[in-house]
Design a protein around this nucleic acid. Sequence first.
DNA 1: ATAGTTGCAAACACTTTGCCGTTGT
DNA 2: ACAACGGCAAAGTGTTTGCAACTAT
Lengths: 141, 141
Amino acid sequence: MADSTIIQRCEAKGLRMTDQRRIVARVIGAADDHPDVEELYARASAVDPKISLATVYRTVKLFEEAGILERLEFGDGRARYEDAERDHHDHLIDVTTGQVIEFIDQEIEDLQEKIAARLGYKLIGHRLELLAVPVAKPSKT
Amino acid sequence: MADSTIIQRCEAKGLRMTDQRRIVARVIGAADDHPDVEELYARASAVDPKISLATVYRTVKLFEEAGILERLEFGDGRARYEDAERDHHDHLIDVTTGQVIEFIDQEIEDLQEKIAARLGYKLIGHRLELLAVPVAKPSKT
DNA sequence: ATAGTTGCAAACACTTTGCCGTTGT
DNA sequence: ACAACGGCAAAGTGTTTGCAACTAT
């Protein structure tokens, strides 16, 4: 189940697929940013104006528990979701703009496993966010 | 201001020091775990039974904004605080028990800077939590 | 047919805030 | 003295839930 859509993976897991769930699935699948629930609701509402916020919350939670979505928290108190099936990556947050940049670095992945092992643990996941400022423009200094 | 107490750093920054703030400062300084605000409130209440939860919230926020404390979020919806002056470290969370283990690894710190630089950014901070399970006991596999 | 789902509004958990009497400097 | 602070309870967020009507299988 490598390159399947969110909807296909839902079906594969036997989740009952309603119109609302399909809409939420599509909205997330189409997103290339990291929308919070309110934003998913706004995008879903554009497709079906009578979908409710509660349904969006229930749906993302369901999908998350099914391992289809991954919940992210960037420290602003709102949960964000992304397709769990996408290639693993971490996030760099531009603190000047709030922009989120995805990246992968195998070296850092390996290092994390090594650190966990050193502490007597087996790594099952991690959260890594780099907070940074652009290095380009500003005047001197 | 390397090895100073939280209270000393508050004074150095010119914060008005009340009894309540001193209590919160001491409670955090004495903690070797990662208490959430409710827990800080419980510990502070043991010293001064009439301190209010609102004051604890106001105080940790004030201290955080002064750069004296660091706010942590382990994904359970509650903010946790620790002394920002302690040596930098990251956290490994034992998902079977919720226990939090602190660690430092210079290699991973350097790598993060390198990654940020590669993306055109200057690293100003990061959040890293490893989620892991103990590797010892279990039977065969 | 029927167990699961939805929308709505009410309930929640955590955190912030307005008001007013109190306190640090 | 007086701006800043603390306690209280009320208000705010983001998220969850009870319920009656609806829908996928």
